[in-house]
Amino acid sequence: MNYTLHQLQVFFKVTQTKSITKAAEELHLSQPAVSIQLRNFQDQFDIPLTEIIGRQLYVTDFGKEIALAANTILNEVHAINYKTMAFKGQLSGCLKLAVVSTGKYVIPYFLSDFLKLNRAVELEMDVNNKTKVVKALKNNEVDFAFVSVVPKDIAIESEVLLQNKLVLVGNNSVEIDTKNKVSDLLFTTPLLFREAGSATRMAMEDYVSKHKIQSKMAIQLTSNEAVKQAIIAGLGISIMPIIGLKNELDNKQLKTIPSAGLPIITNWRLIWLKGKKRSPVASAFLEFIRKEKDLISTNTFSWMSNY
Rank of each mutant, 00 (worst) to 15 (best):
T15P: 02
K210T: 13
S223Y: 04
Q16S: 09
K132A: 08
A284I: 10
I213C: 07
A196D: 12
P190R: 03
E124S: 12
L49E: 05
V160R: 06
Y3W: 15
N71T: 14
L97F: 09
I156P: 10
V14Q: 11
D61V: 10
D184M: 08
H211C: 12
T102F: 06
L191P: 00
F12A: 15
K96F: 08
Q220L: 01
A67Q: 09
P108K: 05
G236N: 03
T15N: 01
I52R: 09
D206I: 01
D61F: 10
L49P: 09
V134E: 03
C94E: 14
G275K: 01
I271R: 07
L286H: 13
R55H: 09
F285R: 01
S283D: 12
N251W: 13
D206W: 01
P280N: 14
L111F: 07
A79I: 04
S279N: 10
K104R: 15
V77T: 02
I47G: 06
V77F: 02
R269P: 00
K104M: 08
F62E: 02
N247V: 04
H78T: 12
D143Q: 13
L74N: 05
E141M: 15
L95G: 00
L162H: 03
S30F: 06
E26V: 13
F62N: 00
I271C: 11
V10P: 10
Y109W: 02
Q163E: 08
I20C: 12
L137A: 04
A230E: 08
K179N: 12
K132S: 09
Q56L: 07
L286F: 13
V167M: 14
T21L: 14
Q56F: 09
Y58I: 01
Q56V: 14
N40F: 01
V182G: 10
R119G: 07
I271Q: 07
K210E: 15
H28Q: 13
W268G: 02
T266W: 01
L235I: 00
V134H: 02
S183G: 06
I73W: 04
G244S: 00
K252E: 15
P258G: 10
N247P: 01
K83S: 06
Q37I: 03
L191R: 03
G275Y: 06
K274A: 11
N180I: 12
T200E: 14
S297N: 01
E26Y: 11
N171A: 13
A120Y: 04
I66S: 03
E195K: 06
Y207N: 06
I52Y: 07
D153G: 08
D126G: 08
V149N: 12
